[in-house]
Structures are given as structure tokens and as C-alpha cells.
Computed example of a mutant assay.
Amino acid sequence: MRLTDRTLNRLPKPVAEALRKNRETVKFIIVGGFCYVVSLVANYALRLTVFESKPVTALTIANVIATVVSYFLNREWSFRTRGGRRRHHEMLLYTVANGIGVAVNSAPLWIAQYVFGLHYPNISHAVEEISDFVFGMIIGVALAMVFRLWAYRVWVFPHDDVRPAPKRYEVPPQPAPADSTGG
């Protein structure tokens, strides 16, 4: 039995059924959570080193890194039965959708920095960090996630059940123990 099924079997039945019904979306969210951590780490690694004064650039590069990781995880896990396009066409559409996704993700931070002026010296360094996190890593990520889920289903992996899903292995029932009394 796969890890996903073992995990779902431990949940209350209504919750497990709802998650199984929306399995693709749940997997997309799990991949997104992992890639969120990738982008968070990359963003702050860049912001604290080479792009200290360029938070939008750091966030954009971090999102590009997370997008590459996301493609492989989504292609082979979240949307593994979907497709319908040649691999190079699919990758091109994925790149375009994620280019738009990176712009959607970066837009709230850009607006905060350059329209609202939420940067030093207009505000303190601490408030700037909080603002950058909220606009870039929360609002931007949420907007981009909704856009990407829609774009993947409609453009990138448009047809369901075109690639075979791996077979599910059921645990065979265990035979009852033999009566040791001989009788």
C-alpha cells in the first residue's frame, strides 16, 4: 500500500474521502508547500547576500528556482495521469504559465515597494521585512498558487487519464491464526 493511502486510512472517514476525491489538488498543494519552502530559503539566502538591496529580484530568482523543482514534482506526481501534449510543448506551456505565475507572485511585493513606498527610509527595516514577507511570501504566493492550479489543468496538463496511473496494491487479508489446541 502506498504512503498516501496509508496516511489517508488513518484520517477520519469523511476527511479521507474528501481528500481522495480531490487527490490531484491535495498533491498540488503538497508540492506547492515544498516549493514554498524552497523559494523561502532561496529568497532569504539571496536577500541576505548578493541581493540585499533588491528584494524583488531576489524573490523573482527564488521563484524561478522553485518553479523548476515544481515542474518535475507536479509532472511526475500531482498530475501524473494528465497530459495530452508532447513533452516539449508541455514544458513550453509550463514555462509560460510559470512566467506569468512568477509575475503574479512578484506583483504584490512590487506594488508594496514602489507604489506604496514600503521600504527604507520611508519605514523602518523591521516594518519593511514584515511588509516584504506579507506581500511577497503570503499574498503573492497565494495569488500565484490559484493561478497555477488553474493554468496547469487548463493549459499544461489539459487531458485527464492519458498516462496510466501506477497500480494500487491492496493489502491482502491475513488468514485467521490456526487453532493451536488441535481441535
Rank of each mutant, 00 (worst) to 15 (best):
M1Q: 15
R2L: 07
R2N: 15
L3R: 10
T4K: 04
N9Y: 01
L11R: 01
L11F: 06
P12T: 03
A16H: 03
A16P: 09
A16L: 03
E17I: 01
A18L: 07
I29P: 08
I29A: 15
I29E: 01
V31Y: 02
G32K: 01
G32M: 05
F34Y: 13
S39R: 01
A42K: 01
N43S: 13
Y44C: 00
A45Q: 06
L46P: 00
R47I: 14
L48M: 11
T49L: 07
P55M: 02
V56L: 14
A58H: 02
T60W: 03
I61N: 01
V64F: 15
I65W: 08
S70T: 14
Y71T: 08
N74R: 02
E76L: 15
E76P: 11
S78H: 05
F79M: 05
F79T: 02
T81L: 03
T81S: 15
R87F: 12
R87W: 08
H88F: 10
M91A: 12
T95P: 12
A97Q: 11
A97R: 09
A97F: 10
N98W: 08
N98A: 04
N98M: 11
N98C: 13
L109T: 14
W110M: 12
A112M: 14
Y114T: 06
G117Q: 08
H119E: 11
H119D: 06
S124P: 06
H125V: 09
V127Y: 08
E128A: 06
E129K: 14
S131M: 02
D132P: 03
F133R: 00
V134H: 04
M137D: 05
I138E: 05
V141R: 00
A142R: 07
A142M: 08
L143I: 14
L143D: 00
A144E: 00
M145W: 01
L149S: 03
W150S: 07
W150R: 04
W150V: 09
A151K: 05
Y152L: 11
F157V: 04
F157S: 00
F157A: 01
D160P: 04
D160Q: 15
D161I: 07
V162S: 05
V162E: 05
V162F: 04
P164R: 03
P164E: 05
P166K: 02
R168G: 06
Y169P: 04
Y169N: 09
E170F: 13
E170L: 10
V171R: 13
A178L: 10
S180L: 14
G183D: 11
